[in-house]
Nucleic acid binder design. Structure first.
Length: 552
RNA sequence: GCGCCUGUAGCUCAGUUGGAUAGAGCGUCGGCCUCCGGAGCCGAAGGUCACAGGUUCGAAUCCUGUCAGGCGCGCCA
């Protein structure tokens, strides 16, 4: 919960005691007995001033105008904490303002319109998306949403590696499958693709182009197949993403980087800075001067370039396009690549904070405690599509966002399919639906709930605990955005849903605690609290790209 | 061998950037509700925060080392 006036008053008091420029941290104490807000300022000051923290705490309190700050009590506790108890009226009024802010509650202008590029998924156009891509998509999209909420101008981007050897591999795999379909002996090459979809593609190509592809393939046939495959795979990936509720603003392809002349521009830029050199017939970039363990080849001795060079050119282009920050969401198998890209961006003169990588760990899917190994269609992995078809977009997204990105995760299919409050997604969605159903049962139009009513009838301690959680939301959004950690939002929503559910369930035991069926003054006051909770649940779910349903 | 990530309750995970008595869900156990089943409600037990040192008023959090797991270490992408 924020209380900027109190923070400033504390800092002023600290300064008066000789603590120049100390920042006053306010936090929600873990235990209710410790009040509503606490600060460790006296202990921080004690180290600096070589004085006893509890004495300093006393002097700090004496310099505060408690009444003006809506503080009912200020107590010194433990080694030197100051615990503040806010007036109940202050909390009531702040919660009322949540409802007034509505869909805007939790937004901020921290980013001040800074342009941020968030690149994620970026799968090779050589097959269906797998669960790992799904996790990257959920995390990338949620980070994008968090940044939008905090005042950034965000571009969601997908980089298509359409020029590399992987596409050639796929083409050769299709070639082999095509021959097999014609009864000719052939084998999928090493490193080729084995999923059933490869045979499907071969069959389809034969149906469309007939005998043209029956014989050996020359340059022209391969180009034909390449065009067909690239379009098809990208269209499928796009569909998978759409079904997963992820819309990209921009698709950039490796081939367009080659076509744009930016490869040469990048080399020239690096050369001007004296960061390139020749060795063994290749051209190297001095990434090691920027923290990489060794230098990296950009142009091989045969004159072709490594994948790294177009990748640098592509990221450089993000700066050219005006982005101040480029965030890449990568699978754990690419984390070793972070230092060299970071180095390359610095080599081009970008600030240390221009490029940022978010590493997402692997996903293991389990059913009945056993690992689900692969999909029939894709062969060696579980497709995102299969997962979404089985458990739905909301659940899949939520599960991917329910853990820190760096945490290896087990996706429990049994829990995911559970349609009860055991399943955290349903618990949160149900909390929202429950409030909507209160309005319905009461014949109330939520938009017309009177915000001007007296909130004095709100006295239940459980209600105040929940209200404080509601007031934490803007700080939570801020922290989640700054750290690129969407899982803070899911953890928060689960806590809120628990509080809301127990607030609600109190009414099952004691009818006088229900929202409906009370004196109008009581019902009206509780409706405002219900609305505030609904606003936060809905906004939180939106931040994750998950539906806030009217009913379950 | 080197680098990065991870190690918290039986399981899956949080832990407010160093704060007070380490939390939640699932599972387990007890009670309530229900014609039965499912679901739901109330409560309880459950911990050497991988291990060993260090830093300080204070460490799950920071530093060093050890152990275990994952990933990476190419003129592959």
């Amino acid at each position: 919960m924020r209380h900027p006036e109190l923070a400033r008053a504390l800092e002023a008091a600290a300064q008066a005691l000789g603590g120049e420029g100390v920042e006053a941290q306010l936090e929600r104490p873990a235990s209710v007995e410790h009040g509503d807000l606490a600060t460790n300022l006296a202990m921080v000051l004690a180290g600096r001033l070589k004085r006893k923290p509890r004495d300093l705490a006393q002097e700090l309190i004496e310099r505060l105008d408690l009444a003006a700050l809506d503080i009912e009590r200020a107590e010194i506790a433990g080694p030197g904490f100051i615990n503040f108890t806010l007036s109940r009226d202050y909390l009531r009024e702040r919660v009322r303002r949540i409802v007034a802010a509505g869909r805007e509650y939790g937004r901020s202008d921290w980013g001040a319109g800074r342009a941020v590029n968030v690149e994620f998924v970026s799968a090779n156009p050589t097959g269906p998306l797998h669960v790992g891509h799904g996790r990257g998509a959920a995390v990338g999209d949620a980070i994008a949403r968090l940044l939008e909420w905090t005042g950034h101008k965000v571009c969601r981007e997908f980089y298509v590696n359409d020029a590399g050897a992987q596409v050639d591999n796929l083409i050769e795999s299709i070639y082999a499958r095509g021959r097999q379909l014609c009864g000719i002996d052939a084998e999928v090459p090493d490193g080729g693709y084995h999923g059933e979809y490869v045979t499907d593609l071969a069959r389809e190509l034969q149906a469309v182009h007939g005998d043209r592809l029956a014989g050996d393939w020359g340059e022209e046939e391969r180009r034909l197949v390449r065009d067909f495959v690239l379009e098809r795979m990208q269209a499928e990936q796009r569909d998978d993403m759409r079904a997963f509720r992820v819309e990209f603003d921009e698709f950039r392809s490796e081939s367009s980087v080659y076509a744009s002349g930016q490869i040469d521009a990048t080399l020239a830029g690096l050369d001007e800075r004296g960061l390139l050199y020749e060795r063994d017939g290749a051209r190297w970039l001095r990434t090691s001067t920027f923290g990489d363990d060794k230098d990296r080849v950009l142009v091989k001795s045969d004159g072709s370039c490594t994948y790294f060079l177009p990748d640098i050119a592509y990221h450089r282009d993000k700066a050219v396009r005006g982005f101040k920050t480029a965030i890449d969401v990568w699978g754990a198998d690419h984390h070793g690549y972070v230092p060299r890209m970071t180095a390359a961006m610095q080599a081009l003169g970008m600030g240390r904070d221009f490029f940022e990588a978010v590493i997402v760990q692997l996903v293991r899917v389990e059913r009945g405690g056993e690992e689900v190994k692969f999909s029939k269609r894709a062969g060696e992995f579980v497709t995102l599509r299969d997962l979404v078809d089985e458990v739905g977009t909301d659940v899949t997204r939520y599960f991917f966002l329910d853990r820190g990105p760096q945490q290896q995760m087990v996706f429990d299919l049994d829990l995911a399919k559970e349609r009860s409050e055991k399943n955290p997604v349903y618990k949160v969605q149900y909390a929202h639906a429950r409030l909507r159903s209160v309005y319905r049962r009461g014949g109330i139009e939520p938009e017309k709930i009177d915000l001007g009513v007296d909130l004095a009838p709100i006295t239940q301690p459980a209600a105040f605990e929940m209200m404080k959680t509601l007031l934490d939301f803007p700080e939570l959004v801020d922290a989640a955005a700054r750290n690129r950690e969407p899982h803070r939002v899911t953890a928060y929503l689960e806590e809120l849903a628990n509080q809301l559910n127990s607030w609600y369930h109190a009414g099952t035991r004691d009818p006088s605690l229900r929202v409906l069926g009370q004196e109008p003054a009581v019902t009206n006051a509780r409706l405002v609290i219900a609305r505030a909770a609904e606003v936060v649940l809905r906004n939180g779910l939106e931040l994750l790209g998950i539906d806030a349903p009217e009913q379950m």
